[in-house]
Design a protein around this nucleic acid. Structure first.
Lengths: 245, 245
DNA sequence: CGTGGGGTTGATTCTTATCAATTCGGGTGG
DNA sequence: CCACCCGAATTGATAAGAATCAACCCCACG
């Protein structure tokens, strides 16, 4: 299983000093293991920690009174989970593992230390949160404004880019129910929609792996604009210097 | 027109020192005036600033290729606009005024200064972003999982609470088109949905003012849970101390 | 007086949900 | 080894919700 950590993620946006790396590393010293499907943290629980995902995939979700579930984020190795609840008393969302995974708890109080000791790291945490928010915005637009086929296409392109896949095949450990819960569709309709995209010769998905047949076609089809992913690392670094943040 | 500022907002979450207040005040020294409907900043533009809204209302939106528009945030006096684009090169959303308004630009670079000089303020900016994100999450759930009537009800309750209205009547300077764009509905369907809520004796809206007939009924009807608004100030303060953030 | 934006209402269409049935593959227990 | 079950995907039939198209009203404003 692929392993990653916060230092690697942050290094993509700024050159870190020894001290800064040390500080970050110290936050990942107690990895805990989880099985696929296990809940790391449930909605409504008191929260004192956020988490970094060292390996595996996870998702955040909210459940409504009538049992409907909305998947809010898909977390990949190296990402921070639960950052948005730092100011809240109780968890606003569940965190559930999609695969076997390792996560490191990270007390909110230590975040305050970082804000004191390493303002540059504080900036990076801030940027991580801003990045997360950009993705939520794109999710709103996707769910609210695109029909099912474009919506699914957009989601698949997003995952492909987030995984930095240059080839057109990647594993996606989500079944059609989870995909539907993320996109505001029923599992049945996800199935139908996959069929349509397959018939159009754009993508297909078999046994947990997505095969993109026509990446450009797919991008055109859903009007995908990658700006919100903030993945142009070189650009980001330059801005970091320019903005001194 | 009601006036507010960043200091007032932040004071609700922590007791600020002289210095901290001074630092924040210095960020609001150049208010600019806008007319209703005016665009403060358009999607795709280079961004170097974020803004505080001193008076009036505004919204953030995204526009798709086919002209569809999604309203993402409604900003009230005292709120910060454009915080999530701090790390991005170009604006991900438009900012448009709903009423006559005053806003103060705030260069990203000065945020870095604050992160250096006043870690406690940095924490507060972080919390502001986290708060904004919580609202986006609720918006996703609302759009994705609730039918039009509950969706509208939820939106109206949210606005009522955000305005700290104890009475059951408040001004809402949004026409049905804008409300629809915020909720993922057409203006026509917003009209129909208002009619339904009116007929049920829950709320009505006339000439820009919302009249809630049965607040509890409305809350019940859409399953509103105010936790995400983070408005329990006393609680937040205590947590602030507890978490030292 | 016209004109245009905003709201309402009706008729129709389209998208997606819901319900139901079938298949397939992978366990699991006899 | 086989019968069984279960979760996941697929497909069909039907229903509900919301969009679309169109007409109309009201009123503020030139």
């Amino acid at each position: 299983m692929e392993k990653s950590c916060i230092v690697e993620q942050f290094k993509r946006y700024a050159d870190l000093t020894e001290d800064e790396c040390g500080l970050l590393d110290s936050l990942e010293n107690e990895p805990r293991s989880f099985r696929a499907g296990e809940t790391l943290r449930a909605e409504g629980e008191q929260v004192k920690c956020f988490y970094t995902l060292r390996s595996g995939w996870a998702y955040a979700s909210r459940t409504l009174a009538d049992g409907e579930r909305q998947v809010l984020d898909i977390y990949l190795p190296g990402q921070i989970m639960g950052l948005r609840e730092v100011g809240a008393g109780s968890a606003l969302s569940n965190i559930v593992m999609l695969t076997e995974a390792e996560a490191c708890p990270f007390p909110h109080s230590r975040l305050a230390e970082i804000f004191e000791q390493a303002p540059r790291l504080a900036s990076l945490f801030f940027l991580a949160l801003a990045q997360e928010e950009s993705m939520l915005i794109e999710r709103i637009v996707n769910i609210s404004r695109r029909p099912a086929d474009q919506r699914l296409a957009h989601f698949l392109i997003e995952m492909k880019l987030r995984l930095h896949k240059t080839c057109d095949e990647f594993e996606l450990p989500m079944n059609q129910t989870v995909i539907g819960d993320a996109l505001g569709l029923t599992a049945v309709h996800v199935s139908r929609t996959f069929k349509r995209l397959r018939d159009e010769g754009l993508v297909c998905m078999e046994e947990g792996t997505v095969k993109v047949s026509d990446a450009n076609g797919l991008i055109q089809f859903c009007g995908f604009n990658p700006a919100y992913l903030g993945q142009n690392v070189e650009l980001s670094r330059r801005q970091m210097k320019a903005a001194a943040i």
